[in-house]
Nucleic acid binder design. Structure first.
Length: 110
DNA sequence: CCGTTGACGCCAT
DNA sequence: TATGGCGCCAACG
């Protein structure tokens, strides 16, 4: 496995995040086996613009904040997409975050 | 080649 | 509880 399958795995996991659910950078990093590299997950997301079917808006930080909203077409794009999926947002934070959280590990356990 | 910069998160104080 | 420090490591100038 190439060391840069890291990015591929990030995309693969994000692609599996169900509509109306969210996950976090750290959770993704941990599920790949690099729990300390959550920043790299964010970096991968930055490059996910060209990738098809990668719902980057469903990835938030560990507190449920939409820290990546600045990197979308408009600063409201991320929030709009989530609301569209039924995810409530308030003050740039996902409401009911713990309940909507989707753990990537559940995908591995299957 | 080297210093800086992050869509983060844990740990120490 | 609230800050601040630092590990992480590819990308960029």
């Amino acid at each position: 496995m190439d060391k840069f399958d890291f990015y591929k795995q990030v995309y693969a996991i994000v692609r599996e995040v169900p509509c109306g659910r969210v996950t976090s950078y750290g959770a993704i990093a941990k599920s790949i086996g690099m729990p300390k590299s959550s920043r790299m997950v964010g970096y991968a997301m930055n490059a996910s613009h060209d990738m098809p079917d990668v719902p980057a808006h469903r990835v938030v930080n560990r507190n449920g904040f939409l820290t990546g909203r600045m990197h979308f077409a408009t600063s409201d794009q991320m929030e709009e997409l989530l609301i569209k999926e039924g995810v409530l947002i308030n003050e740039n934070q996902v409401q009911n975050f713990e309940e909507l959280f989707w753990d990537p590990f559940s995908l591995i356990k299957e």
